[in-house]
């Protein structure tokens, strides 16, 4: 049984955060697993699986100097790590329109009730500060079938200036 930890990290974006964090971990014989790293609103964020044969407090101790020097906040949790068992999405839902509070709550409430298991969600706020655009892309598994989601989406109420499109993902395997 491999010993997996999840590192969550956030701080003001600057060059070389990934290089410095991963170098420190490599020097401590850590092996990295799956990760999501992205810039969100000027912050750099990391969710990173780390395999490490020791306790969380040692890992914490290893990360502290580099995170302090880069002014990053971080957190380490021991997790059950499971590799080589990716679930494959069969639907994609694209949402875009005028930015306003409540879009995510409304769309995901409706989708969850109709059986959507979300595997991946990415969103951006684009446009200008006067006219902000909200753009969200969701991928997931339609546990109750695609038609149930299509029917449910008719009841989404985010106003006329927000569009919601569902498309099926048919993965080609060759």
């Amino acid at each position: 049984m491999k010993n997996w930890f999840m590192l969550t990290l956030v701080g003001k974006d600057r060059p070389a955060i990934v290089a410095k964090i991963s170098s420190v971990l490599f020097q401590e014989n850590c092996n990295l697993g799956e990760a999501s790293m992205t810039r969100l609103g000027g912050n750099f964020t990391i969710m990173l699986m780390i395999q490490f044969d020791g306790p969380a407090d040692i890992l914490d101790h290893v990360l502290q100097p580099v995170c302090d020097s880069l002014k990053l906040r971080y957190h380490v949790d021991q997790i059950d790590g499971e590799l080589h068992h990716h679930l494959e999405p069969n639907v994609q839902i694209s949402v875009h329109g005028a930015d306003k509070a409540g879009i995510v709550a409304e769309v995901t409430r409706v989708l969850a009730a109709a059986g959507l298991d979300i595997l991946n969600l990415e969103s951006d706020v684009a446009g200008t500060s006067e006219n902000p655009l909200y753009i969200m892309n969701i991928e997931g598994v339609a546990e109750k079938g695609v038609e149930a989601l299509n029917q449910a989406l008719k009841s989404v109420d985010c106003g006329e200036d927000v569009e919601v499109h569902l498309s099926e993902i048919d993965i080609l395997r060759g």
Partner: peptide, 10 residues
């Protein structure tokens, strides 16, 4: 579109 491959599992 989304693709997978018999030669690239998971």
């Amino acid at each position: 579109g989304r693709e997978g491959c018999l030669s690239v599992p998971d």
